[in-house]
């Protein structure tokens, strides 16, 4: 909508932005939320998936989500990564959206996405969602901004201990890339002009299994209310390893360490999963409108882990 903006905006020249697939950038540019000119990088980096002798993958930042979703070797080695890629956005968007772009995308908060509303991510001084309508906001209130991080792939990569290399820094963890959720002006820690180059995944563990699911209202094509990527190693009917990374609940993807610890060495059955799922919300601090996300988070933990224990 063409809206009258009466308050004078800072006149500093908006910083240019990298554009890969453009699926996030184009929308912000059309709506006027983002004013910076695009710098096309779609030919400026790698889109290849390469494998080392140990079976670890290195994914070029410009690999498309569709490539990751359909690559047979990724699906075999990192089923949680493949399933996450299959679950996000729509088929047409996945064809052009890149892994690097997915990690660097901006918030989906509906206040942020309106050009005529100021917020912490747009040099405003308060978070209008916190005092206003935060139905899709965080349930782990870790910083001034209450928008959950939008990157599904970030949660999946967190579950896999992936590291990110930029043109300036190497071996950044997902926490290193996205911060701890306390910083609200940005969606990541990338400096101006810093570009993600590749994402490294450690070799998969012997016998590990993984899965992903998002809780949404419709069947497909919706930003997750809550999402979960889980990896397990089960031996002799017991959990040897449990890795849980949740999205949609906090300003950054979260490891559910309390549940991981609670399940360690426990029987891989629905009773122990149900018990440990309760710990998934430890440390949660829901907003007035987001308590439901904690129920969904527990439900997802049970859903995904039960399927992996079958």
């Amino acid at each position: 909508m063409s809206v009258a903006v009466t308050t004078a905006k800072p006149t500093a020249k908006p910083a240019p932005e990298f554009r890969a697939g453009g699926t996030d950038f184009s929308e912000r540019r059309r709506s006027g939320v983002s004013q910076g000119a695009p710098i096309d990088i779609s030919a400026a980096g790698s889109k290849a998936i390469t494998w080392d002798a140990d079976g670890a993958a290195l994914i070029g930042a410009l690999a498309t989500i569709a490539t990751i979703a359909t690559d047979a070797r990724i699906a075999a080695a990192y089923p949680g990564i493949a399933a996450s890629a299959q679950g996000l956005a729509t088929p047409q968007v996945r064809q052009v959206a890149t892994l690097g772009g997915n990690l660097a995308q901006r918030s989906r908060c509906w206040y942020f996405r309106r050009a005529d509303i100021d917020c912490l991510k747009k040099s405003g001084s308060t978070c209008p969602a916190r005092s206003g309508n935060h139905l899709y906001g965080v349930a782990f209130d870790l910083g001034p901004c209450v928008a959950p991080h939008p990157s599904t792939m970030a949660a999946a990569l967190l579950a896999y201990d992936a590291t990110v290399t930029t043109d300036r820094r190497s071996a950044l963890t997902i926490a290193g890339l996205l911060g701890d959720g306390s910083v609200s002006h940005a969606d990541h820690t990338l400096a101006a002009g810093e570009m993600i180059e590749s994402i490294a995944l450690p070799a998969p563990l012997a016998g590990e299994r993984a899965s992903y699911k998002r809780a949404i209202s419709r069947t497909y094509a919706e930003w997750p209310l809550v999402e979960l990527c889980a990896r397990v190693v089960i031996a002799d009917g017991r959990f040897q390893l449990v890795r849980l990374a949740a999205g949609g609940v906090a300003p950054v993807p979260l490891r559910l360490t309390a549940t991981e610890v609670a399940l360690s060495g426990k029987a891989a059955n629905s009773a122990s999963i149900a018990e440990a799922a309760k710990a998934a919300t430890s440390g949660a601090k829901p907003l007035p409108m987001t308590a439901y996300k904690l129920d969904l988070l527990q439900g997802l933990v049970r859903d995904v882990l039960e399927r992996l224990s079958d």
Partner: peptide
């Protein structure tokens, strides 16, 4: 099941002004 307009309770801005936030049913 899905559709509702969301507003900011004090400013009166319509927050569900995109088809991501105003959810109509899909084929599935």
């Amino acid at each position: 099941l899905y559709e509702t307009r969301e507003t900011d309770p004090s400013s009166g801005h319509i927050l569900s002004g995109s088809m991501e936030d105003y959810r109509i049913p899909g084929i599935a």
